[in-house]
Amino acid sequence: MKAKIVITPKKAVLDPQGKTVQTALEHMGYTGVAGVHVGKYIEIDLAPGTDKAAAATALDEAARKFLSNPVIEDYKLEIVD
């Protein structure tokens, strides 16, 4: 079982990295790009036999308190078998 956490900058936060990647894509000729947001992806391997619901609760807290900063970032947590 794995936890997958995707962290992205909040829309209100300046994202110069996303902007730079967008500009580069445009320069390379990729059209139709309306916005790019560069974030982080964290994968956590869960020990065999871990209770899925309990892991979801614990990791949601960890994502809120530590893995992301709610002032500047949003996160999505997913637990997959």
Partner: peptide, 17 residues
């Protein structure tokens, strides 16, 4: 101190990277 919640706000990447 911002991360610890002792001060308001956060510091992010400089606008020109």
């Amino acid at each position: 101190l911002c991360e610890a919640g002792l001060l308001p706000g956060a510091l992010v990447r400089n606008r020109d990277l």
